[in-house]
Amino acid sequence: MTAAAPVANARMYSATPETAAAWKSLLTWVLARAGLDWPVVDYPPPAPLNALWARDDLGLAMMCGLPFAQRDAAGGAGRPQLVAAPVPAPPRYAGRPVYFTDIVVRADAPFQTLADTFGGTAGYTLADSMSGGVALRCHLAAARAARGARLYARAVGGLIHARGVIEALARGAIDVGPLDSYYHDLLVQNAPHFAAQVRTVATTAARPIPPLVATAGLDGSVMAALRAALAEVATEPALAGERHRLRLAGFAVPQAADYAPLAAMAAADIPSFEEL
């Protein structure tokens, strides 16, 4: 029996139907350029991303940097291979495969600074999400220590993704929450009216952006072909529309070790959201 081909997927940054279609087109081009007859599979919400990342047949799929770092540190058969990482085009990324957490409030809220939100309700996506949970806790930890008391009266979790944070802010369920900056930029580009419901009051330090990984165990020639095709994305005329839609400059190949600090952040002894 012939083994099933690995699959490709970009669900993590499919912020809108338009971006989902652009990613599918781009990945289809990359696979064809690399000479790989792999399917680009759909995996729409609300299917859980953790279940996608647990698959052992991923050939080219976006994964949050935190579970990648944790699984890389654990080693063994479940260790993903890092293929490449997107380089967002907006100037704040400075041509690097990094991202931030934008800390946002409702557009018409009176808050001008992050400190103005103290005493209110903080929201987060999932406690084990890098951009939607861990990065915000780490950013707030110093203020919590300096204050010696809780920063927020209440915390609301389980918002799942960036859209959930924006929706919670819009209905007044929370006063402040975190957005993956690249996802945020994709919403500004492709769903401006939805994105305009919030504004940024603070931004965390830059950290390595969620990478494209493989769990299927690619050999060296396949990895080289994929990386060569991804390198061509930056200049390929046929992908100009996709690059514009995705606010994408191209792809880089960071080191797996670049992601190790994310696992350390998650393991650090800092207050939980219920203690912030």
Rank of each mutant, 00 (worst) to 15 (best):
T2P: 15
A224M: 02
R11Y: 13
P86H: 11
G76K: 08
L226Y: 02
P210I: 05
T16W: 01
A268D: 13
V105C: 01
D180P: 10
G250K: 07
L218Y: 04
Y99Q: 14
P45S: 14
P261Q: 01
M1N: 10
D56G: 15
L226S: 03
N190F: 04
T121E: 00
A162P: 13
A260F: 04
G177P: 07
A3F: 03
D219L: 00
D219N: 11
A206I: 02
C138G: 10
P80F: 05
C138M: 12
A216P: 06
R33N: 13
A74H: 07
V165P: 04
A142D: 14
E242N: 14
N190S: 10
V83P: 00
R150I: 03
G35W: 05
V41R: 07
K24V: 04
L49K: 11
P80L: 05
I160M: 11
F118N: 00
I103R: 01
A268Y: 07
M223F: 00
P211D: 06
P254F: 05
Y259H: 02
A77E: 13
L230T: 15
P46S: 09
G132K: 05
D258S: 00
L179V: 08
A224E: 11
A85E: 10
D128E: 12
V165M: 02
R79A: 14
A168F: 00
H161S: 15
A115N: 09
S131V: 13
R207C: 06
V253I: 15
P211S: 05
P6H: 06
G177Y: 03
P178Y: 01
F251A: 11
P48Q: 13
V201T: 00
F100Y: 14
A135H: 10
V134H: 10
L186A: 12
R11H: 14
R171W: 09
L58T: 07
W38N: 11
A267I: 02
A74F: 11
A256L: 10
M265Y: 08
D42K: 11
D116T: 00
G35I: 09
V30R: 09
E232D: 14
Q197F: 08
I270V: 15
M265T: 07
L186S: 13
A191Q: 12
A84D: 12
R96H: 02
F68V: 02
A228N: 13
R33S: 15
V156N: 06
G172F: 12
L230P: 14
A268N: 06
H139E: 12
P44W: 08
A69F: 05
A249C: 06
D180V: 08
I160G: 03
Q81R: 08
Y182Q: 10
T235R: 07
A229L: 11
V165I: 15
S181Q: 06
R245W: 05
A22N: 10
S221L: 04
V134R: 09
F100R: 02
R247E: 15
A3T: 15
A115L: 08
R96T: 04
R243V: 09
S129L: 12
V40S: 03
A15C: 08
A162C: 15
L186E: 12
D116R: 00
A145L: 04
I174C: 01
T117V: 01
S129C: 14
T19Q: 02
P46D: 10
L239V: 11
L230E: 14
G172E: 12
A225R: 14
E274L: 10
A205M: 08
Q255F: 04
R163D: 13
R247Q: 15
G217E: 02
W23C: 11
H244Y: 12
L27Q: 15
I209K: 09
A122N: 09
R55Q: 07
